[in-house]
Amino acid sequence: MANASDLRRVAMSLEGTTEAPHFDRAAFKVKRIYATLAADGLTANLNLAPDEQEFKVMMAPQAFAPIQNAWGRKGWTTMTLAAVDEAELRAALEMAWQHALPKR
């Protein structure tokens, strides 16, 4: 079972990541934001590709859900922290982090 401290620690271990406020959330970004942590620390929103989102939701619907708006249709996904272990947390964050890296 992961929590906000786990998310922050794992995200900050990913190369180039910085943390900054983003409205009422904490945002983690490299070139672009790839994850935000809710103010209550219970959920995080991740920038996944639509096919990655579909897979995560299919495999772990208790942990992952599309955001219910246009951002969700683009792949932004809500992750319930208490429903994932640290390995799944790290895998999901690394997946989102890849999308935020500068294009080479």
Rank of each mutant, 00 (worst) to 15 (best):
A2F: 04
Y34K: 08
T80Y: 04
K31W: 04
M79K: 07
W97Q: 00
V30R: 05
A35W: 02
A11E: 04
E15M: 02
A63F: 06
G16A: 09
E52T: 13
M59C: 10
Q53H: 02
R32N: 13
L81E: 04
M1K: 11
L81I: 10
R9S: 12
L37S: 03
L48T: 05
A100T: 05
R25L: 05
L101T: 03
Y34I: 05
R8V: 12
D85C: 03
A70N: 11
Q98N: 08
G41I: 08
A87D: 14
R104N: 10
A92D: 05
S5W: 00
L46K: 07
A82V: 11
F64N: 08
G41D: 03
D85R: 10
A2E: 04
R25T: 11
A26W: 08
L42C: 06
H22N: 10
F55I: 12
K103I: 03
F55K: 14
R73A: 11
A4L: 03
E54N: 08
D24V: 01
A96L: 06
M1S: 11
G75C: 09
F64I: 07
S13G: 13
R32M: 07
E52Q: 15
K31A: 14
R73H: 13
L89M: 11
M59S: 14
A26F: 02
T78C: 11
M1T: 10
P50Q: 09
A11F: 02
A63P: 03
M79G: 04
W97L: 01
E54D: 13
L93D: 03
M59A: 14
E54A: 15
T17E: 00
L81T: 09
Y34L: 04
